[in-house]
Nucleic acid binder design. Structure first.
Lengths: 180, 180
DNA sequence: GACAGAATTGAGCGCTTGCTCAATCTTGTG
DNA sequence: CACAAGATTGAGCAAGCGCTCAATTCTGTC
C-alpha cells in the first residue's frame, strides 16, 4: 500500500530535472541522470526514452515557475521585475536551448508549444486587465515576450555590454511605449 | 604562379559554409564538410580545428549578408522588409544556434560578438540618420534587434501560429512606436 | 630525371552517446 | 516457505564524433 520511499521512475524524473537545471539541455546525458538518481543505467530505459524524459523534465521545470497568480496590476510589475532577475538565468538558457532543439525533437517542440502558450495567455490576460491602456493585449503580449526572449539571448551570448539591469530597463521602456 | 584551381583550404572553407547553410551548426560534422569538398578526411585537420573552422564559416556566411550600404531612409525600410523574408530563415537558424554555442565555444562567441556588433552599429547609424524621430538610436537599435531575434525564435520553434508576415507586422508596429 | 618539401589520403584510435538484454534482486501473495 | 511478477542492474553493442599519423601523391627546382 504505502509506496516505496524511492520509486524508480519518480527518482529519475526528479534527477533529470536537476541535471537539466545544472548543465542545460545540450550537455545533459542519460548517464548523468542515472548517476544523479543513484540508480542503474538500465532503469532509465526501462521507463523512458531519452527524448521524452528530457522534454518531460524540461516542462516540469517551467511548470514550477508558472506559480500562483497575483493581482492583475501587480502581475505586470512582477513580470517586469523578475524577467531578468539573476535567478532567471537558468531559465533563459533552458528556453533558448529548447527553441533550438524543437526543430529536431518533436517531444521538445510539443512541450515548448504548451509552455509558450500558457505564458503568452497569462501575459495577455494580465494586459487585458488594463484595456484602456492596451487596446490589443494579444499582440502586445507577443511583442513583449519576443523582446524578452531576444534580450535574454543577447545576455546569454554575453557578446554585447548589456547588463541584466539594462535589459530590464529596455523591457520597461518598450512596455511604456506599448501601453502609451 | 597561377594558383591551383582547387586550393584545399579554400575548398574546405567553402564546403563548410555550404554545409552550415544546409544542416545548421549542430548537425554539421567534419565528415560532411570533407565529403562535400571532395577531399580526404585528414586534410581538414591539417589546416583547421573543427571549432575554428565552424566559427570561420559561420562568420563568412553573415559577412556576405551584410552586403552594400543603401540610402539611409531606404536602409530602414529594407531592413524591415527583409527581416522575415523566406530566404532569411537559414540565417535565423544559424543565429539561434550560434547564440547557443557561444556559451561553450569561445571561437563562436568571438565571431558572434563581431557580427552582432557590426549589425547593431549599422542599424544604429541608420536610425541616427533620422534624429528628429529617434532621440536614442543606440537603445532603439538594441530593442529592435532583440525584438527581431525574439520573433525569429518564435517562428523557428513553429510553436505559435505566428507567420512571417505577422512577424514583420509586429516589427513594423514596434518600429512605429519607437519612432513616435 | 632526380629530389626535397608540401599537399593529401584513409584506416583507425579513443571517446561519448542512447540503448539492449540476460541475469539478479525485491516484493507481495497464497 | 514457495513462487510468479515486477523492479533493477551493468556489461556491452552499434553508431557517431573529432582527430592522429604513417604512407602516398603531387609539384616546383636544379
Amino acid at each position: 500500500m504505502d509506496k516505496r520511499a524511492s520509486d524508480g521512475a519518480a527518482l529519475i524524473r526528479q534527477a533529470a530535472a536537476d541535471v537539466l537545471r545544472e548543465v542545460g539541455l545540450h550537455a545533459a546525458t542519460t548517464r548523468a541522470v542515472t548517476d544523479r538518481a543513484g540508480v542503474g543505467r538500465g532503469l532509465l530505459n526501462h521507463y523512458f526514452r531519452w527524448p521524452e524524459l528530457r522534454a518531460l523534465a524540461w516542462e516540469a521545470i517551467f511548470a514550477e515557475v508558472e506559480g500562483p497568480e497575483a493581482a492583475p496590476d501587480e502581475a505586470l510589475e512582477a513580470w517586469l521585475a523578475t524577467a531578468f532577475a539573476p535567478e532567471a538565468r537558468t531559465y533563459w538558457r533552458l528556453w533558448l536551448e529548447a527553441t533550438d532543439l524543437a526543430a529536431s525533437d518533436p517531444a521538445m517542440a510539443a512541450a515548448l508549444t504548451r509552455v509558450q502558450g500558457r505564458m503568452l495567455a497569462r501575459l495577455t490576460a494580465d494586459l487585458a486587465a488594463v484595456p484602456e491602456r492596451c487596446p490589443d493585449p494579444k499582440a502586445t503580449a507577443l511583442r513583449l515576450t519576443a523582446l524578452q526572449d531576444g534580450l535574454a539571448g543577447l545576455l546569454l551570448a554575453g557578446t554585447t555590454d548589456l547588463t541584466p539591469e539594462m535589459a530590464e530597463a529596455h523591457l520597461r521602456r518598450a512596455f511604456a511605449l506599448e501601453l502609451g
